[in-house]
Nucleic acid binder design. Sequence first.
DNA 1: CCCATGACTGATT
DNA 2: TAATCAGCCATGG
Length: 106
Amino acid sequence: MKRTTDSLYSVIYRTVKRIPKGRVATYGQIARLAGLPGQARLVGYALHNLRGHRDPHVPWQRVINARGESSLPGLDAELQRQLLKSEGVIFDRNGRTDLLQFGWKK
DNA sequence: CCCATGACTGATT
DNA sequence: TAATCAGCCATGG
């Protein structure tokens, strides 16, 4: 089975689209559900690539790291928190959310 | 082809 | 709770 980069990104995007509104998933969780266990970094790479792609159909803001915080640099982290906050996800003063409460339970 | 980097993770200290 | 570290692999120089 040949895996092109495009197919890898596609399966990742499809998985991210399954995250319900008001929920968050970790990079590792997306990797597992996409059939790529242990490949969390690839999920981050795929989402990063999304920027140039500018596909509004992929809810990138619902993907955060295993510590419950945004992994985006600088101002983008605030944008992500703002978008999630508008969906009902609550962040504490350290910019973290409770995965037990808001994590996507698949 | 080699090397460094990155929107990461889980275990260990 | 926080800092370290090895493992991960596509991407770009």
